[in-house]
Write a protein that binds this DNA or RNA. Sequence first.
DNA 1: GTCTATAGGCAGATAGAC
DNA 2: GTCTATCTGCCTATAGAC
Lengths: 198, 198
Amino acid sequence: MEGSAAEGERSHTATRILDAAQDLVQRRGYNAVSYGDLAAELDLTTAAIHYHFPSKADLGEAMVARYRRTNADERAAIRSRTNTVRERLTQYVDLYADVLAEGGLCLCGVLAADNATLPKAVRREVQGFFDDQTDWLTSILAEGTDVTAQLEGCESPRQAAELFLAAIEGAMLTHRTPRNQLNAYRASLRCLIDTIAA
Amino acid sequence: MEGSAAEGERSHTATRILDAAQDLVQRRGYNAVSYGDLAAELDLTTAAIHYHFPSKADLGEAMVARYRRTNADERAAIRSRTNTVRERLTQYVDLYADVLAEGGLCLCGVLAADNATLPKAVRREVQGFFDDQTDWLTSILAEGTDVTAQLEGCESPRQAAELFLAAIEGAMLTHRTPRNQLNAYRASLRCLIDTIAA
DNA sequence: GTCTATAGGCAGATAGAC
DNA sequence: GTCTATCTGCCTATAGAC
């Protein structure tokens, strides 16, 4: 899940700001990232950043909206380059390998933890991201052999999708501090994938 | 997972401060809770709070340490009042029902998201909490029928415990914004429990 | 144990020059 | 598009009276 996406009309500086903001938020959380931090990182002044993103709410909204677009592209790429549920889930899990290795989390996982303090527009985007993931995972699972047979208590592909998403977000969170995070993260998810795609 | 625990020697005011701090942090995150917020909530001044907890790091450490003790008592109670793996996991999941209904998360789940900005002592306690949970879940699972048979890719009870913990923390995170959070949270976990304790 | 008062710093945000 | 300068407010923390 890389920072830069197909940026459309956005200026070079605006893109750099979004890159830095995303990187810092993924590692520190929304409320621990300031215009001052970004300015220092990018060798700009806070006023310059306010020119591109008038308020922090604007910056946050643009950041998550871009994250959703990039993520949609990555999911589409996975779907088109693979054929089995197992391959798809495995590559989906690995979308987070890089951030995790650098001490970060899924952008929307972090933001969900800060939920109560988020501007409304940002909160809406975060919710949209989770809906995107659940929808996609549901369709992936529905194409394979019946998941509800592998996961005993599961009544629908959607329910399995929600469990899978929860497991991913949670595994990032719980394996954050100690070493071998990446391996532990992968191991937990492999456990679920093997059950689902037996 | 209630706020107040067996407080030992702590003064009434110190306990009230910890209660308010825990409540606010679980709903807003570590960096969105200030001495000013606590003072307003408790009808005190920030100076009074500094008397009980000189720095925010002290407050954070005491808060998580107490959370761990309370949680240990709750786990012990579950173990002694139940007999099956299914009952134990179900009641363990329900430990978070109240906070979740009030818009909060597991204290350590929130703090893990803020990990990079946490004082060292607090980070240590958070890691300790996750270790506590994994150890306990491992022992619970090891007592039942072989989990590695139910969860295909699982090589040990510990691995299943880590997946279960991740699923819990993640389900709280992903079901935070929309309504029916509690039901969705429970449904995701029931799915896993039914598979594990088939 | 709680208060008033205050220090010193950083937050988000704006005005106006270049 | 970026700068300097500045505003206002909140942050953590401390000194000292009661």
